[in-house]
């Protein structure tokens, strides 16, 4: 499955805001998503906001990135101003299991 435009946007913005290369930025965001239980293909803007606030700062700090919190706050604000035409390809397992419960 291909990566979502939300993931691509955050990776590009992170690359521009830090000294990380494109591969390093994508790898770092991918690790943060994995630690959050979210996939790069299915991440939603709301989920990405939480990852940017609570998981990515630690990952950036671990990679020696200066002002990791400030960078992530900037990314979160920038993400809020974006509009993504995300088309969901069917239901997630969560959607189905939510429906099955009484």
């Amino acid at each position: 499955m291909s990566d979502s435009p939300i993931f691509d946007w955050v990776c590009r913005a992170l690359e521009e805001a830090t000294a990380l290369s494109a591969i390093e930025a994508r790898g770092t965001v991918r690790i943060a998503l994995k630690k959050s239980g979210v996939t790069s293909a299915g991440v939603t803007p709301a989920q990405m906001q939480v990852v940017l606030k609570r998981v990515l700062p630690e990952e950036l700090a671990r990679r020696g990135c200066a002002d990791a919190d400030g960078v992530c706050t900037g990314l979160a604000q920038g993400l809020m101003e974006q509009h993504f035409d995300t088309v969901r390809s069917g239901e997630s397992p969560e959607d189905v299991f939510a429906r099955l419960g009484a």
Partner: peptide
């Protein structure tokens, strides 16, 4: 999928009962 949702649950991104449904199934 339960293991994925458990990580989301720690960040407030999942419903506890729904997460538990995957474990029980």
């Amino acid at each position: 999928y339960y293991l994925q949702l458990r990580k989301r649950l720690r960040l407030g991104l999942a419903d506890p009962l729904l997460t538990d449904r995957f474990r029980l199934w």
